[in-house]
């Protein structure tokens, strides 16, 4: 298992082959955070596109630049798919802004259940 902790997230790659990112409680993601986190995912992917689960249940969202980076070509070179884990109306709203307005180059979907998200992500291994 690989594990890293950045300023904004705890990032884990276990035997499932899916990278799981847990945004720290009440954290508001900026562009630098997005870059730092994707760099770790890239390292974990070891040159291959990798499916990613991002748990934003406790997050306070992200800046416009961060949202744009999430949908950037750069991100498309790292992730094969991305599931955003939400729970409250606030996290659902944040999730929709991440995947709605900026069209990503890879499949994205909102989930409220982590195991359902993992089942979906395994299609992109």
């Amino acid at each position: 298992m690989l594990k890293a902790t950045t300023k904004s997230e705890t990032i884990i790659l276990d035997s499932s082959g899916v990278v799981k990112c847990y945004v720290h409680k009440d954290y508001f993601l900026e562009l630098d955070d997005a870059k730092e986190n994707l760099e770790v995912v890239k390292r974990f992917g070891n040159g291959k596109l990798i499916p990613v689960l991002v748990d934003i249940k406790e997050s306070k969202g992200g800046s416009k630049e961060c949202r744009a980076y999430f949908a950037s070509e750069e991100a498309g070179k790292i992730q094969s798919a991305c599931a955003l884990l939400v729970s409250s109306p606030l996290s659902r709203l944040i999730g929709n802004f991440f995947i709605g307005l900026n069209k990503t180059k890879f499949p994205t979907k909102l989930f409220t259940d982590e195991s359902e998200a993992m089942d979906w992500l395994k299609n992109f291994l």
Binding site: F28, K60, P89, L90, L93
Partner: peptide, 12 residues
């Protein structure tokens, strides 16, 4: 940025 409905609408 809280789960208060007015805050959510405002943030959105």
């Amino acid at each position: 940025i809280t789960n208060d409905p007015i805050d959510i609408i405002s943030y959105g």
